[in-house]
């Protein structure tokens, strides 16, 4: 902490379906300063704006007029999603979103290695790259390094998510976004993928934001914790403040900050029903 700022959100708002009866303020005057090396966990109930926050940072849609997203000192709020991707790697909730099923593992990794570079007419899969891919896959311990020519569609959900993680991080983006990336996996596989996540983040000294539905995970991982409610960040705890917290402390903190009763059971459960996740 106290490091240089990597990402700044300044007065970021997002309203969906403006002017209709379905109008929703998904993000309400968000200001956030992420320092280099931060590993932030974000919790909040359904509709709190967690996924919208990640989508805005990733450039899926722009913030409302006047909102600024500053990465490495540059405002990228109005750049398209693929331009955001040169700074930002992302692992999605659904393993199928982060990988291409009809292409091989090597082809998927070749797509990932070109992040932030212009794609030209060089051969995509070379000997050197294959060596690089093997080295990136070995630490997963899933023996994917021997299956570079296998179609990704033939892998299990856990294997695909581990591959997504490698793809999101292998070209070393400035920021890693994790969007409930273990929510659809079984508890054991989820644990493996989370440990891999932590290993890669600490090895590459990455800055990361992890959205989760699970308060235990939010406390176990990372060095800073954000709690969102109705489009606002209502709790922001640093390393010292969250050190000895328990889930029930968090629920108290939520009720105090929001002035509401904590009613969402799913946040308290350790394994979360993926169907409850709000889709954009």
């Amino acid at each position: 902490m106290g490091n240089h700022s990597l990402l700044q959100l300044i007065k970021v708002n997002k309203v969906f379906c403006r002017g209709t009866i379905d109008e929703v303020t998904a993000l309400d005057q968000i200001n956030l300063d992420v320092s280099i090396g931060d590993f932030i966990t974000v919790i909040g109930s359904n509709g709190a704006g967690k996924t919208t926050l990640l989508n805005i940072i990733a450039g899926v849609y722009p913030p409302e007029r006047g909102g600024r997203i500053i990465v490495n000192g540059r405002n990228i709020a109005n750049l398209s999603e693929h331009r955001h991707a040169q700074y930002i790697g992302r692992v999605y909730q659904d393993p199928r979103t982060g990988t291409a099923a009809k292409m091989t593992i090597a082809e998927n990794l070749s797509l990932a290695i070109m992040r932030g570079q212009s794609r030209g007419i060089n051969t995509a899969i070379t000997k050197q790259r294959k060596q690089l891919f093997r080295e990136a896959l070995v630490p997963l311990g899933l023996e994917l390094e021997d299956r570079l020519t296998a179609l990704v569609g033939t892998l299990s959900g856990g294997q695909r998510q581990a591959l997504s993680l490698v793809m999101a991080t292998m070209s070393k983006p400035s920021l890693l976004l994790l969007d409930e990336h273990t929510a659809t996996l079984d508890p054991k596989t989820a644990r493996i993928v989370l440990d891999l996540t932590e290993m890669i983040i600490s090895r590459e000294k990455m800055t990361a934001i992890m959205v989760t539905h699970n308060m235990e995970l939010a406390l176990r991982y990372g060095n800073r914790l954000l709690m969102m409610h109705k489009g606002r960040i209502i709790v922001d705890l640093n390393q010292d403040q969250r050190r000895n917290l328990t889930v029930s402390n968090l629920v108290d903190a939520f009720e105090k900050a929001s002035g509401e009763q904590f009613a969402d059971d799913s946040v308290l459960l350790s394994s979360v029903d993926p169907a409850t996740k709000q889709k954009n």
Binding site: H82, A85, Q86, R96, G98, A100, L111, M114
Partner: peptide
């Protein structure tokens, strides 16, 4: 997977 390509900067 169009979403993935955009997410990887394509």
């Amino acid at each position: 997977n169009e979403q993935m390509v955009r997410g990887l900067g394509g």
